[in-house]
Computed example of a mutant assay.
Amino acid sequence: MELSGSRWKGKGFADIAAENPMSEIVRKLKYFLTQSKETAMLSGCVSLLEAKTELADLLNRSCFGRQITTSEKANHWFQLSSEETFYMLHDLQSLTIINQTESPLSELELWNYMKVNKERFPELYMAYAHLRRKNWVVRTGAQYGADFVAYRHHPALVHSDYAVVVLQEGDGIVQKNGRLRAWSDLQCSLRVSGSVAKTLLVLFVNRNGSDGAFPSCLQHFSVEERTITRWVAEQCREDE
Rank of each mutant, 00 (worst) to 15 (best):
97 I>T: 03
233 A>T: 11
25 I>M: 06
210 S>I: 03
94 S>H: 09
84 E>A: 04
230 R>F: 13
153 H>R: 04
192 V>R: 14
194 G>P: 05
136 W>R: 11
104 P>A: 08
207 R>P: 00
84 E>N: 04
237 R>T: 08
98 I>D: 08
13 F>P: 05
202 V>N: 10
206 N>Y: 04
199 T>F: 04
156 A>P: 02
26 V>H: 10
142 A>E: 12
215 P>N: 03
50 E>V: 03
197 A>I: 05
193 S>R: 02
187 Q>R: 12
172 G>K: 02
166 V>D: 08
145 G>V: 05
74 A>F: 13
60 N>V: 10
173 I>N: 04
70 T>N: 08
192 V>D: 12
233 A>F: 07
184 S>I: 10
232 V>P: 09
109 E>D: 14
238 E>D: 13
195 S>E: 10
110 L>N: 06
224 E>I: 13
237 R>P: 00
111 W>S: 12
224 E>F: 12
222 S>L: 01
75 N>W: 14
121 F>C: 02
138 V>Y: 07
184 S>P: 07
84 E>D: 03
65 G>R: 10
133 R>A: 01
137 V>L: 02
224 E>D: 14
137 V>K: 02
42 L>M: 15
192 V>L: 13
155 P>L: 02
100 Q>L: 14
106 S>G: 14
149 V>S: 01
26 V>T: 12
196 V>S: 10
138 V>H: 06
77 W>L: 15
11 K>H: 11
11 K>N: 10
150 A>P: 03
6 S>G: 07
167 L>E: 08
85 T>K: 13
14 A>T: 08
118 K>G: 11
42 L>D: 08
231 W>M: 13
16 I>R: 06
237 R>S: 08
203 L>Q: 11
218 L>I: 12
196 V>Y: 11
138 V>P: 09
3 L>D: 07
232 V>K: 15
31 Y>D: 15
180 L>K: 12
25 I>C: 04
206 N>C: 13
32 F>D: 00
16 I>F: 09
238 E>A: 14
207 R>L: 01
239 D>G: 14
35 Q>P: 01
238 E>I: 14
20 N>A: 07
160 S>Q: 11
177 N>C: 09
131 L>I: 05
158 V>S: 00
81 S>A: 12
165 V>E: 01
205 V>A: 02
182 A>M: 13
34 T>L: 07
165 V>L: 02
107 E>D: 15
126 M>F: 14
83 E>G: 10
200 L>M: 00
79 Q>R: 14
171 D>R: 05
160 S>N: 12
74 A>L: 15
109 E>G: 12
64 F>M: 09
48 L>A: 06
86 F>G: 01
167 L>Q: 09
139 R>I: 02
76 H>I: 02
150 A>E: 01
240 E>Y: 08
228 I>S: 03
28 K>T: 06
158 V>F: 00
40 A>S: 14
218 L>K: 09
130 H>G: 01
84 E>I: 04
239 D>E: 15
121 F>K: 00
4 S>K: 15
